[in-house]
């Protein structure tokens, strides 16, 4: 590798993103935060939980809270299908599941390919978006998982 190419790698690193579908849009999350992807299984409701908590699942003896991603993203509710998946993510010191319509693929993006979104509007969901990217003639929305919930909400998830 030439010095020029090496400098290019450092300045413009390549990142891997797991993409998933939600209400006909494609979203991406950093692959480093994804532990595994599960088929949809029964989610036990949690009494007294906030609406964005769908319930809990038993993941090899560990209780994992599953978040209603559609509700969190202010999208309409839909029935589950064969494509529905629970993506187990790790953020901070917590392991949670997010329910998505389908998991698509892992894509490689250079940092320079990621565009920032216009900082307009007051919608809660806008703060989840880390950036966007045009890949394979479609828009990929990159999600900052840690901003999906407030610190207090993340802390509350420990108690479910």
């Amino acid at each position: 590798m030439s010095t020029y190419e090496a400098k290019g790698v450092v300045d413009d690193p390549v990142l891997q993103w797991v993409t998933f579908r939600l209400d006909n849009e494609t979203y991406g999350i950093n692959v480093m935060q994804v532990q595994e992807v599960l088929r949809y299984s029964e989610i036990a409701p949690v009494p007294g939980a906030p609406p964005y908590v769908l319930g809990i699942i038993n993941l090899r003896g560990n209780v994992v809270t599953v978040i209603d991603t559609r509700l969190r993203f202010s999208l309409s509710q839909t029935e589950t299908s064969d494509q529905t998946r629970i993506v187990i993510i790790e953020t901070g010191n917590q392991v949670v599941g997010i329910l998505v319509d389908a998991v698509a693929e892992v894509v490689y993006l250079r940092q320079s390919e990621i565009e920032t979104t216009p900082n307009v509007g007051n919608e809660e969901t806008a703060k989840f978006i880390q950036g966007v990217c045009h890949k394979n003639e479609e828009l990929l929305i990159l999600v900052d998982l840690e901003k999906m919930m407030s610190d207090e909400e993340w802390a509350d998830l420990n108690d479910f």
Partner: peptide, 23 residues
């Protein structure tokens, strides 16, 4: 059982029985 502290909002909840996924 996944035990929880009693300082949270749902003080009536001792924990979750993992095998049965119930409170």
């Amino acid at each position: 059982v996944k035990w929880r502290s009693q300082k949270g909002k749902r003080q009536w909840l001792a924990g979750t029985v993992i095998e049965h996924m119930c409170a």
